[in-house]
Design a protein around this nucleic acid. Structure first.
Lengths: 160, 160
DNA sequence: ACCATACCGTCTACTCTGGATGATGCAAGC
DNA sequence: GCTTGCATCATCCAGAGTAGACGGTATGGT
């Protein structure tokens, strides 16, 4: 994920990666901001990123891909994942263990509706200009939000 | 999650919880088996579980809910979650960062189809006898697997 | 009696999380 | 010019979680 972010950015500081991630890939794959610093450091030590540091002030470190980093990223991309993600949904966990349906469904419908609206706005405004993979990922997000909405509406007893 | 598992079981050792979990809640919320041992210990120390230990042989620890544990579980269940889960799907991450669509879609379709078949078999055989929350959770899993199948079929260029 | 196999618990090294902490830079108001 | 306040940016820490190796205990078949 970090290599991919750096590739997209060309050159970037961990802080910038954080900004970009929170608005894009962070919608379906998050990490802590602190981790970006340690991970970039690790990748640099492994020779996959090159590091350049300001001498004064903020002492920002700017990273970019090395040829080895490009190779590692390509290798990862061209080995299609067969593993599946897991839902790991807090609301579903409560439902599983017998929480009352109505209030839970109401809360979840509200949250998912908001998220869906956000995604749809993004898709409408930026969908055309996004790289294809990113657009498709966004569409996957939209589809799953719609699915959750259907699900929780049904659980809550409304007509979906 | 652990409190819920113990409630379902009545009394159980961490090993038994592991067995049960891997066939039920583990389909959408996993933890390492080692964690069940440490978590039960922690919950016991916090007064939410009571512990009973064999003196010889395996020195198994058997846990059950204390009144405080029941209260904690109820409190958790009756505060409807508003947070959303995240997809965190490895295949989607590859797609996002520009992996080739066809081979990835093929691999993912295969994996998701297998998972869907497993869920549907489970639903057909046990659906009726499952507690409602568990049945609904299973149905959520089925719905999302179908969604993934639609998605990856489309990405791979097949008619969904 | 022995062996293969399943059952069961613990350990270690490492990564990740959540959040606090503190420093730097910039712009607006005095 | 100077202060003050806010956004930017980096680091740190304790504790939780992960991956998987490892080792001990029971059981049934030969």
């Amino acid at each position: 994920m970090v290599l991919g972010l750096v590739e997209n950015a060309g050159r970037a500081t961990p802080y910038q990666l954080k900004q970009v991630a929170s608005r894009s890939v962070g919608n379906f794959w998050t990490i802590q901001h602190a981790q970006l610093y340690t991970e970039c450091e690790r990748l640099a030590k492994a020779g996959l990123l090159s590091e350049e540091r300001e001498t004064g002030g903020r002492r920002r470190r700017t990273y970019s891909l090395t040829p080895a980093g490009v190779a590692a990223l390509d290798a990862w991309r061209s080995a299609p994942a067969t593993e599946l993600g897991e839902l790991r949904d807090p609301g579903l966990l409560q439902l599983f263990f017998g929480a009352e349906k109505e209030p839970l469904a109401r809360a979840q419908v509200e949250s998912h509706a908001a998220k869906l609206a956000e995604y749809e706005a993004l898709h409408a405004s930026a969908g055309e200009w996004l790289p294809e993979g990113q657009r498709l990922a966004l569409e996957a997000g939209i589809a799953h939000e719609r699915e959750w909405l259907r699900f929780w509406s049904r659980v809550g007893g409304q007509t979906p």
